[in-house]
Amino acid sequence: MSVITAGARDSSVVTWRNLMNVRRQPDLLLGATVQPIMFVLLFAFVFGGSIGDNPDAYREFLMGGIFAQTVAFNSAYTTLGMAADLEKGVIDRFRSLPMSRGAVLFGRTTADLAVSALGLLVMSICGLLVGWRIRGSFLDAVLAYAILLLFSFAMSWVGAFVGMASGNVQVAQSAGFIWMFPLTFVSSAFVSANAMPGPLKVIANWNPVTAVADAVRDLFGNPRPGILQATSDSWPAQHSVLWSIVSCLAILAIFAPIAVAKYRKVASK
């Protein structure tokens, strides 16, 4: 059997195993579904009245940011999953089997992508309830969801690396989540990057979360309330769709190889 088909078969076996885990233990889905709902409601109704002059418009603006944030958090679930497998000795067993080296990671990130897709569905419904609409074309909407899933997948590989570096679930609990907050808040997910002080503004402009949030707002045709207009003339702000795709691919190009390299050497305990 060729290396590719063997790798695909091994990956699909591991994906199946991970999805069976989700099916048998549905509380694993809580984080992926309840958290985004919570964020939609919190931002929409707690901050909604204070940010900008039009709460309805802010809620619609908000959805792109919450989409981007939620798929970014997918990386934390991958981190936890890898750390748990490592801690239980499952990774040792996999590594002692004659299976392809990337299959455990590919199977994990693929399964987490499926969970992430479910989260997007739940969130979209929740968004529709608070007044968000898809106002763009069908193809633009498809592209928006594709970008979100690509970003989710890319972040999942970062999470896989972090999970193996953490070594156990306890460390992974913090290591997986802590960097999510600056990553998702130093962006245009909830506010305008323009209001941030100099260096932070540069980071926010180039942050893939900003690109993804802006890209899906554009593609879904969600208007920005006056105060949150993207007046930035930075290159990424002008090319959010392109930059979101390029940055996702760059994340994958960096983290997929180092995650696989880490997997080859990783030791439980």
Binding site: V14, R17, F94, P98, M99
Partner: peptide, 25 residues
């Protein structure tokens, strides 16, 4: 067979062994 039983708790006994068989090719 490692120090801690590396079985997948959410899979059945059959599924655990089936998975290993598949991963041996």
């Amino acid at each position: 067979s490692g120090q801690y039983a590396a079985v997948d708790e959410n899979l059945t006994g059959y599924e655990n062994l089936y998975m290993v068989g598949r991963l041996y090719g």
